[in-house]
Design a protein around this nucleic acid. Sequence first.
DNA 1: TTGTAGGCGTTATCAT
DNA 2: ATGATAACGCCTACAA
Lengths: 341, 341
Amino acid sequence: MEQVTIKDIAKICNVGVTTVSRAINDHPDINPETKQRIMDAIREYHYFPNNSARNLKRSENQTIAVLVKGISNPFFGPIIEVLEREIIRRHFSFVLQQVEEEEDEVEAAISLEKEKRLKGIIFLGGSVHHTANRLRLVRIPSVISTVDTQIPPDIENCAVVSIDDEAESYKMVDHLCRSGHKRIAILTASERDNSIGKKRLEGYLRALKDHGISADEELIVRMKQDQRSYTIRQGYEITSRFLEKKKEFTCIYAVSDTLAIGALRAVIDAGLKVPEDVCIAGFDGLDIARYYNPAVTTICQPGEEIAAETVRILFDMIEGKETSRRVVFEGTLLKGGSTID
Amino acid sequence: MEQVTIKDIAKICNVGVTTVSRAINDHPDINPETKQRIMDAIREYHYFPNNSARNLKRSENQTIAVLVKGISNPFFGPIIEVLEREIIRRHFSFVLQQVEEEEDEVEAAISLEKEKRLKGIIFLGGSVHHTANRLRLVRIPSVISTVDTQIPPDIENCAVVSIDDEAESYKMVDHLCRSGHKRIAILTASERDNSIGKKRLEGYLRALKDHGISADEELIVRMKQDQRSYTIRQGYEITSRFLEKKKEFTCIYAVSDTLAIGALRAVIDAGLKVPEDVCIAGFDGLDIARYYNPAVTTICQPGEEIAAETVRILFDMIEGKETSRRVVFEGTLLKGGSTID
DNA sequence: TTGTAGGCGTTATCAT
DNA sequence: ATGATAACGCCTACAA
């Protein structure tokens, strides 16, 4: 028997398929003995229900999908854990799906919604805003999490939970300026980025301006596009090249902790001392920033709170309750040994 | 119209469903103009084919699934990237699926195989060996990747690609002993672990023995079970507690780089100098080990080669070719500033 | 080149 | 408590 189906089990047990279906779905209307017989046969013949058939037939499914862009981003690790725990706690199933770099997450969502009869969707990472219009096609409640974006007010089943990237970035650069830095280099995304890289750069520029410092294009160091973004290696390489130019500067602010760590190491390898010769700051509040030597001064995003709030809002929407459409969390400036006050 | 189906599109375009199906699946037997008309309607009415229905009907699907246990493990990041690239390069689709900590990966595989009509499966991480018998139920070719395990020789459509954990661990501890260390503490998994933690501990014990050093139970530091394993934080905490005991030792060997980094930081926080007072070594060869300050001496697993070989073997099996059933790669001892020769 | 009809494996409805 | 049967949305002979 190539593929054991529900019919085979029915035949083996001399019952109808309905009864087998009742057994595997824990329906009440079934004789316990019949059920036992069926379950035994299922085990013996290694029957596994076909999920495609189930999803096709079922009108709805108590499951929430999390769509992550860049699943190996260490920032998402603890967040995914909380999302999962909170979803399971509410007796829903949890599906984690990776979205490819070039893939449109909204399209993936629509497709998955149909395929799995989802009840809700969480977008983690990515840059959903340029597809805001497509969001209209998502019929079920969704929350965009950790991405600071705007959604048109008429899209009613979608919410956003994140920090304010521009403001938090301002907070960091403001702090650095107050510490006396006047020549602060920034490590950020490539020119055509339209996501956190851009927002955090804007915060940097505004802070400089408020401190009467004119921005110097030469201190804006951008990632190379031919490599994975926001990696330690990327941080190391762009910093090394920057150092070779012998620009004058006293501080490097990287828009992610991973970049900051690469920068830190590049600076050390160049024979400079941190923080005596160069101060370094990051963004995100990764564990590794805290545990690096020296600890990296950073803006800590309350990732786990964002995750918990994300799930809370999603379920409010699912249950038809009134709920906030936009929640902005505050980041915390965490001072480490990589900067001097 | 709640859910647009293929029938709706057919009706709208005044054609049969077959023709619509032909259009969306790029069948040759269709009038280009008809196709264009259909594609326009699809876009206009936002039709998305239902994947469940497709998978149900399709007898096979050119797709490979990767089942990862512990997807946020940084060791898997670059590996997944290579797996994906290699699979796509062979014109197959790639599906990444997370397996829960308590979930049985083989069962997940069987379920997914039916649901998506997979052509092959890659197991990444986890500890597949205690379910070897269940592996028999997986009808399609599979490769267990990065897990050093044995599979019964009669299971013919399953292969293993990994390093030899015991031998590599031996290599590291042997090196440490040759550097003069006699009191080497090890940071490893909990007692009931039956995976890498155990294998690497065995290598440690054998190396000590070969150097005439008797193992000291007090130098075997185990992870706490109430926390996520192999995290930096875990490494920091168990090391801190260990330091409080004031045991005599000159070196800490952690069975993962993440643990090693936590240990490193704990040692530094305790006012000790690395490597002058304490040497520290890790395992895996993560980027962060290389970029830490000081760089962590570690065994570097050739993750990307393992990934490439995994895909190669899988496709050999799919194509019915003879191929190796077991490939063991060598790790490389990478010396960093965290130890002294 | 196009359409009709049957079936993929399951669940839901409605009898019995 | 149980079973027959009609969907679910799609693909694919086969027929036209």
